[in-house]
Simulated assay, not measured.
Amino acid sequence: MPPPDVPVLPRPTATPALPAAPVDVTEAWLANRRLSAHTRDAYRRDVTAWLTWCAHTDLDPLRATFLHVNAYARALEGSVGARTGRPLTPATVARRLSAVSSWYDFLVKLRAVDANPVAGADRPRVDRDHSATVGLSPQEVDALLAAAHADTGPTAARNRAVVALLADLGLRVGELVSLDLTDLGVERGHRSVRFVGKGGRPRRRALTPPTAYAVDAYLAERAAAQGLPPAELTGPLLVTATGGRLDRHSVFRLVRRLARDAGIASWARLSPHSLRHAFATTARAEGVPLEDVQDAMGHADPRTTRRYDRDRHNLDRDPAYVIWAARSRRTPG
């Protein structure tokens, strides 16, 4: 039976054939794109959710039209996120439809469908000038770092490295937990880290002295526990107590616990992305050019970077003052 309140639209009787099972086609689509492991998993979940909806509504996904996609979008808008317990945001719905659209583009190339049904669908409008992320002030970031330094226990050194990497580099949580020890290096006198960013783009960032110190201290402690010199450690950069790769959910819990310890009022609504948000906002407030912040964050579109800059509407930064000052310098007397 289809889920309640979900429109069921008629489907044609003719049934085209996929070149393979939907799961195999999805894996082929993902393998065809340069994506990070986190993005790959997210896209897989998004397409699986669409195919599940199609099955519930007795719809062949190869016969879907933009009307079916619209019905699916309205169903998403009326659903609740499993993690947040709140209705899905327009940005989340748009992202899920974007994944489905990319999947259909792949099917068009395979000649399994004639056209992409998502292309003509009514997608939610996403305000590029707004970020729903709960941000942190520079003082709150300082308090969070202080809470990490005051932390005790067997994972305290690792936790300090985690927070330092998030705060000083503004990494995405998926980028953070994907780091391996082989990603650390030295380039032209800079301590550095290399990783695969969003969209599968290889990236590199410089480690600040405090972040490099936090990472070194953590690795020295980890190596001592294994009776090895740090240079002989292998595997993920950040590991659990049992040696497995640290996962994103653990980082979420860590950020909120330390924020609570630091007395930050919004601790229960924070995420690792809050530190990424703070990185961009603080960099722009300190006068770092937009293009440099964009490059550091790995944004393909500068409009994405600009929405993190919540101080950009401050009238102190109105270009009119700069033009007036320049005119004053040119005018004698």
Score class of each variant (00 low, 15 high):
Leu184His: 02
Arg204Lys: 13
Gly189Pro: 01
Gly197Tyr: 09
Asp142Asn: 02
Thr211Gln: 09
Glu232Tyr: 01
Asp114Pro: 00
Leu176Pro: 08
Ala157Gly: 08
Leu184Phe: 08
Thr155Arg: 14
Phe106Cys: 08
Ser102Val: 04
Ala161Glu: 06
Thr89Trp: 00
Ser101Cys: 07
Gly120Gln: 12
Lys109Asp: 15
Leu144Thr: 04
Val100Met: 08
Ala157Ile: 12
Asp183Trp: 05
Leu219Trp: 07
Leu166His: 12
Val186Trp: 01
Arg172Lys: 14
Thr89Met: 00
Lys109Gly: 15
Arg158Ala: 04
Pro154Ile: 06
Thr211Cys: 14
Ala94Cys: 02
Ala148Met: 05
Arg188Leu: 02
Leu110Gly: 09
Glu175Phe: 04
Thr155Cys: 03
Leu107Tyr: 10
Leu207Val: 04
Val100Glu: 01
Arg203Cys: 14
Arg188Trp: 03
Arg125Leu: 01
Arg222Thr: 12
Gly197Trp: 09
Ala99Gly: 11
Pro138Tyr: 12
Val113Gln: 11
Pro202Gly: 13
Phe195Lys: 10
Ala115Asp: 07
Arg160Ile: 09
Arg96Pro: 00
Ala231Ile: 00
His130Gln: 07
Lys109Glu: 15
Arg160Lys: 09
Glu187Lys: 04
Leu97Asn: 04
Ala143Phe: 00
Pro202Gln: 15
Leu107Asp: 09
Arg203Asp: 14
Gly170Leu: 10
Asp129Cys: 02
Asp114Ile: 03
Val118Thr: 12
Ala157Arg: 15
Ala156Asn: 11
Leu144Ala: 00
